[in-house]
């Protein structure tokens, strides 16, 4: 089946005569509008999910993979000495850009979501955290562990990748799932519009037969149905996308502590992505209707 530009552009040129000869197609009009709107609404969410998980995967991948944490758990009298020893080791470690011990205020801020703002940090045996920023290919974690075990026996290296990798993998899979959902939605839309077009064509067999009798070409008959179903799918999809975007906009806004769910949505120019759904739906409707019309016409002389 060929989808040439002139065939598609002819959809938007007014041909009231061709529209007039095909009678109104009743319930199939409502079915096409509704299914296009519903599917586009779902497509907006699938797109939002895909983009949000994509952002998440990128952020985790880029930020967490470049940082590590060293936790020093030592008796109270040795904590400062082991921290300084660990910092000295880090200064001479290849692949470490910088390393610094978190201040008491920063450690308190990290614990605040769990214990509240009034936590008496000094009264608790809280380990000291050292934030390490990596450079190049990063450091050799095993080598660093060995060196630290000699200089600061209470130091534990957490290079983040241990728990970061599965999360990034999960986010990437969620993104693929979102894209796969969009594909399924497109196929389901095509199936529904094909069914509606077939029903309309079957209901108009007599009309098509009369049109052939008086000398109508297949392209003339087919285009009357194509235009009708394509424009209906386009308008239905526009409504669905509008409602979908509104629903996404009304979701709670993303917050640092909000986690994944509040980050589901579009950011910046990503809000333009849903705009491609109505023309894509129209294209799917055009192809589905053209295939159905050509098949029906092929059975008539």
């Amino acid at each position: 089946m060929s989808l040439n530009v002139s065939a598609i552009s002819s959809l938007f040129s007014s041909d009231s005569q061709a529209d007039k000869v095909v009678p109104p197609t009743g319930f199939t009009a409502t079915l096409t509008l509704f299914s296009a709107a519903a599917m586009s609404f779902l497509a907006v969410f699938a797109l939002a999910l895909s983009l949000a998980t994509g952002r998440l995967a990128e952020r985790w991948g880029a930020e967490l993979a470049r940082t590590s944490t060293i936790r020093i758990s030592a008796p109270e009298g040795q904590l400062l000495a082991q921290t300084e020893a660990a910092l000295r080791v880090l200064e001479t470690t290849k692949g470490v850009l910088s390393a610094r011990a978190l201040t008491a205020e920063e450690q308190q801020a990290l614990l605040e979501p769990w214990f509240g703002p009034d936590l008496p940090l000094e009264a608790l045996p809280i380990p000291q955290l050292i934030e390490v920023i990596e450079e190049g290919d990063g450091f050799d974690a095993e080598g660093l562990r060995l060196r630290l075990s000699a200089e600061a026996p209470g130091a534990v290296v957490d290079d983040h990748t241990r728990w970061c990798r599965p999360l990034v993998r999960a986010a990437t899979r969620l993104r693929m799932l979102g894209l796969f959902s969009i594909l399924l939605i497109g196929l389901a839309t095509a199936a529904m519009i094909t069914l509606a077009a077939n029903a309309a064509l079957a209901a108009n067999t007599q009309v098509i037969s009369v049109l052939r009798l008086v000398g109508a070409r297949d392209s003339y008959i087919s285009s009357a149905f194509e235009r009708r179903f394509t424009l209906r799918a386009l308008s239905g999809a526009a409504v669905g996308v509008g409602l979908g975007c509104l629903a996404v906009f009304l979701l709670p806004s993303a917050q640092a502590t909000g986690g994944f769910l509040t980050g589901l949505g579009f950011q910046g120019w990503h809000w333009l992505w849903p705009a491609i759904i109505p023309p894509l739906t129209a294209l799917v409707a055009f192809a589905a209707t053209r295939t159905a019309a050509r098949r029906t016409l092929g059975n008539m002389r």
Partner: peptide, 10 residues
């Protein structure tokens, strides 16, 4: 062809 048939019908 099918288009030729249409032309004949005219």
């Amino acid at each position: 062809e099918r288009d030729d048939v249409a032309m004949v019908r005219r």
